[in-house]
Design a protein around this nucleic acid. Structure first.
Length: 424
RNA sequence: GGAGGGAUGGCCGAGCGGUUUAUGGCGCAUGCCUGGAAAGCAUGUGUGCGAAUAGCACACGGGGGUUCGAAUCCCCCUCCCUCCGCCA
């Protein structure tokens, strides 16, 4: 959510930002919003004047005369009428506020889709096999590591069984990443994976991306407070951990590493990455969350990238880093880098990590503040970045480390968990 | 799941229909005092609109209602505590 006074003072900046992001729809109509905002101010002023009248009447009259009671009754009716109007205007006003995107960072390229993303770094060699290389799924099925047939029967499409050494690879990756982030000063958190709607609203998944979310509750008359959802990332629970909190500014940055399963309905992604375990409804992730001062968020975003790169380098996976463009990021994003790993058998990149500076977009929605040295209330910036996930890195390892004899070399840093040097 | 008891500012804690415009304390900030500090004293210390140290409104877990007037009464919801039940 944006600061309302920022919008009032810089409507052109917001309009330009909406254009840059290639957003379309009534909810992004800034002029209509400003009209509503004006109307809302007028009605608010009006209703506040009447309330003042009511308060004066109520304060000075211990035993009101029947005349005074009659006067109060009239004021009450007027208040109700204006409040009803205000409620309608306010709802429309809020809808715009909920949909307006964060202002993007100046270094983000302007583009309408993923083709506008800019490669800012490449690390490692693009491996060339001198034998007939297989995809991660073919390797996984041949070595009895991945079973998507059984999971299809049991859970539906886009689920998987990770078996035997692949399950050990999973634990290895998670443990390896946990070791890395705790060494870097993150407090480890195991959050709930079922949340209410407010954390999802607060982290920008509602209303904009609600088609990605699994809802557990049913019934049309259910109160919003009683609805429950599966998290798509531990970010949703971890950032919300501090909702309505007044943080101690001296403790910033706060760094949490969340470990959880993540659930995504993947609506609207039909046909993308269908084969194997590249895009599934359930995966596991170690996520890094920062709460920082506005001045330092960019520096910590770089720190997060450094950690991500260190993890991939030690796994020996070839990757590149993308500066995401304005048209390929969510509404909450201020700046975002994606890290993609090279799949040599497919001759293609696959996203394994993302790293976002959300500025104060989340903290405003979740009412997270701290007092700075001048005693002013400040909304901290939040950063969300992937340390590791299980499925895609496993796919990348199988692909990258396959050998001509059909076996797969285990990356050195994972051997203590997998218990062997070679699978198969 | 059942039965009770609770939720008040950064924190603690009064108030239970009308000088409460939220008492009091702690913490914090600023000033006075001091060689410096502590102590003491004074002032300030929720949010919005606003140029404003002007005003007004809002705010007592959230939402709705009753009333001329609600932190206070009623209804719904959430969370916490105690006991019972169930259970890795």
């Amino acid at each position: 959510m944006l600061d309302i006074s920022f919008i009032r003072n810089n409507p052109e900046v917001l309009k330009q930002n909406i254009t840059n992001r290639n957003l379309k729809g009534e909810q992004f109509d800034v002029d209509a919003f400003l009209e509503l905002d004006k109307k809302r101010s007028e009605l608010t002023t009006e209703v506040e004047k009447l309330r003042a009248l009511r308060n004066i009447g109520a304060q000075k009259t211990q035993k009101p005369s029947s005349e005074e009671i009659e006067k109060g009754r009239k004021v009450k009716e007027q208040i109700k009428e204006i409040e009803d109007n205000l409620r309608v205007v306010d709802q429309k006003w809020q809808l715009h506020m909920d949909w307006f995107p964060n202002i993007t960072h100046e270094s983000m390229p302007i583009g309408s889709d993923e083709s506008g993303n800019k490669e800012i770094k490449v690390w490692g060699e693009k491996k060339i096999f001198n034998f007939d290389a297989q995809s991660h799924l073919d390797i996984g099925e041949r070595l009895d590591l991945i079973d998507v047939t059984k999971s299809g029967e049991i859970s539906g499409s886009r689920f998987s069984f990770l078996k035997g050494d692949a399950a050990l690879l999973h634990w290895g990756l998670m443990s390896f990443a946990i070791k890395k982030v705790t060494q870097r000063g993150f407090s480890l958190m195991i959050p709930p994976v079922i949340v209410k709607s407010r954390p999802l609203y607060g982290t920008g998944y509602f209303p904009a991306e609600n088609d990605q979310v699994y809802e557990l509750t049913q019934g049309e008359t259910i109160e919003d407070e009683q609805r429950r959802f599966l998290v798509g990332t531990s970010e949703q629970a971890l950032v919300s951990y501090h909702m309505d909190d007044m943080l101690d500014g001296n403790n910033l940055p706060i760094k949490y590493a969340g470990v959880s399963s993540c659930f995504r309905s993947e609506a609207g992604s039909w046909g993308k990455d269908v084969r194997g375990i590249k895009r599934v409804h359930q995966f596991d992730k170690v996520e890094m969350i920062y709460f920082t001062t506005p001045e330092t968020s960019q520096a910590y975003m770089k720190e997060a990238l450094e950690i991500e790169e260190e993890i991939l380098q030690e796994l020996g996976l070839t990757y590149h880093v993308l500066e995401m463009c304005t048209g390929d990021v969510g509404l909450a994003t201020h700046r975002k880098w994606d890290v993609e790993v090279w799949l040599p058998s497919q001759q293609t990149w696959m996203e394994t990590h993302s790293n976002s500076d959300l500025a104060s977009y989340h903290s405003r929605r979740l009412n997270i503040r701290y007092k700075n040295k001048d005693g002013e209330t400040v909304y901290p910036h939040t950063i969300s970045a992937t340390a590791i996930t299980n499925t895609r890195p496993i796919a990348a390892i199988l692909d990258t480390y396959q050998q001509e004899d059909g076996s797969v070399i285990v990356p050195e840093v994972l051997r203590e968990w997998v218990g062997k040097d070679v699978i198969g």
